[in-house]
Simulated assay, not measured.
Amino acid sequence: MYFYSDNCGPMHPNVRAALLAADEGFMPSYGNDPIMDEVRDQIRDLFGAPDAAVYLVATGTAANALGLATITKPWDTVFCTSLAHINVDECNAPEFYTGGAKLSLVGSGDKMTPEALEQRITGYGTGNVHTSQRGPVQITQVTEMGRLYTLGELRALTDVARAYGLPTFMDGARFANAMAALGCTAREMTVDAGIDALSFGGTKNGCAGVEAVVFFEPDHAWEFELRRKRGAHLVSKHRYLSAQMQGYLAEDTWLKAGAQANANAARLTAGLRGVVGLEFVEEPEANMIFATLPRHAHQTLKAGGAEYGLWGDLEGDPDERVMMRLVCDWSITHAMIDEFLDLARGLT
């Protein structure tokens, strides 16, 4: 019963097969492999962006930090939510790779509104050498609390950014989950919505460790290549990144895996609605579930073998409510879900 994180799941068989197929003979290094040529064309076709610059890195931190750094000057500030991954989970990597750009937090939750964004942007005047300069807007889709921005919400935010001449970067670590949930195309959720650059996630959705960084206008391509090399994220045996992405894209594996993860979470959510004492923090919209239970209930679930995230200590007041995070990936089985639900329904 493992619901700790979609980072913890196995490789998808299609990804594994592509890796094994690539592990033969010799290929050019540093991204010059023929597999990468195929991957680049596939991603351009997927997003309907024939001129997009496409690169691969091994980690989400590298994708977000290097991607943002490429469109951020050291004296800029990046506008993001207080719960944004770049604010709470990257150990200041964005600040490091941008050369000191700061983060300006918009709102107090996982989603920003156009009104709050504009208010934060206008808080920084122009032409004042003593203050940070206005920089990119960063949006996470799916959000850190498992919620979605609709296409209209994305467009409203990017309209504000563009009104002030600012680019928008999307953290798409769970891009497949969002797209499957919204039932839209990749282009509709990015180019048509006004997104300028994107980290397109693979690791959380069936890959061993690969993320794509996509710039829909290629102006920043050379700078990103330099930053990736200088930042020690240009992989020598790049074909193993390329092969993962090749298997991920083949036969819409990425989208099917995201949809399966969402379906698993929906099954789990439906069962949890009957658990006495459980309260949802947010209505689940993709593959993450946030809910609270009394501490004694968590003690019972953990003792029964359930693995999931816990926002608080397991020891303490047994009646205090503690938040949990349950994450489903494509590989979670119905049997695993049902076993957890049987255990949860037995809580008293």
Rank of each mutant, 00 (worst) to 15 (best):
L326R: 05
T190W: 04
G9D: 10
A291V: 04
G165N: 09
M112W: 08
L347A: 11
L241T: 13
I43T: 15
N205C: 04
E115R: 12
L20W: 09
F169S: 01
V106C: 06
Y149N: 15
L56V: 09
H130K: 14
F169Q: 14
D196T: 11
A297D: 00
Y55I: 05
C80S: 05
A161V: 07
E283D: 05
G123Q: 07
D33V: 07
Y4L: 14
V191T: 15
T269W: 12
P318C: 12
C91W: 09
L46V: 09
N262H: 04
E188P: 06
E90Q: 06
R228V: 05
M145Y: 10
Q141T: 11
L278K: 00
V213W: 01
W311K: 13
P284D: 13
P294V: 02
A243W: 11
E38V: 03
Y30H: 12
V137P: 05
E282H: 14
G31M: 02
L182F: 13
A266I: 11
P50D: 08
I332L: 14
R267F: 14
M336D: 14
R230F: 00
S331L: 00
Y30E: 03
E251V: 02
M1H: 12
H298T: 11
T81F: 05
E279F: 10
R174E: 06
N64H: 05
S104G: 02
G48D: 03
A265H: 06
N287Y: 06
R147H: 07
A173S: 15
V213S: 01
G346F: 12
A58F: 14
A344R: 15
M336F: 04
A17D: 12
V15H: 09
A263H: 04
A63N: 13
D192T: 08
Q42V: 01
G165P: 07
T203Q: 01
F47A: 02
A221H: 06
Y30I: 02
